[in-house]
């Protein structure tokens, strides 16, 4: 029973993650792409937890939540509005 639920959770998370990854590459504005990459990082953290790797999940959460978003936002602010 638990394994069925876990399989459904991993497949749903994986499909959402792949759709979001494609969307991050084809969406028009760069700021939207940065927000969507934040969602991909969040899904990766969930998958790490499903793969029995809580240490890796905690690291991915602490890095992907704030730090990598701010790095890309800084670059977007410096480069300017052109796309």
């Amino acid at each position: 029973m638990n394994m069925t639920l876990l399989a459904a959770a991993s497949m749903g998370t994986g499909i959402m993650m792949l759709v979001a990854a494609v969307a991050a590459l084809v969406v028009k504005k760069l700021i939207s792409a940065i927000i969507i990459v934040g969602f991909v990082s969040l899904s990766a953290s969930v998958l790490f937890l499903l793969m029995d790797a809580p240490d890796v999940a905690i690291t991915e959460a602490s890095i992907g939540a704030a730090i990598s978003t701010v790095i890309f936002l800084w670059g977007r602010g410096k480069i300017g509005g052109q796309e």
């Binding site: 809580p54 240490d55 999940a57 905690i58 690291t59 959460a61 602490s62 890095i63 730090i67």
Partner: peptide, 10 residues
């Protein structure tokens, strides 16, 4: 779960 790398990031 934890250690130097995630704690430093926090």
């Amino acid at each position: 779960p934890g250690g130097g790398f995630p704690g430093g990031a926090v």
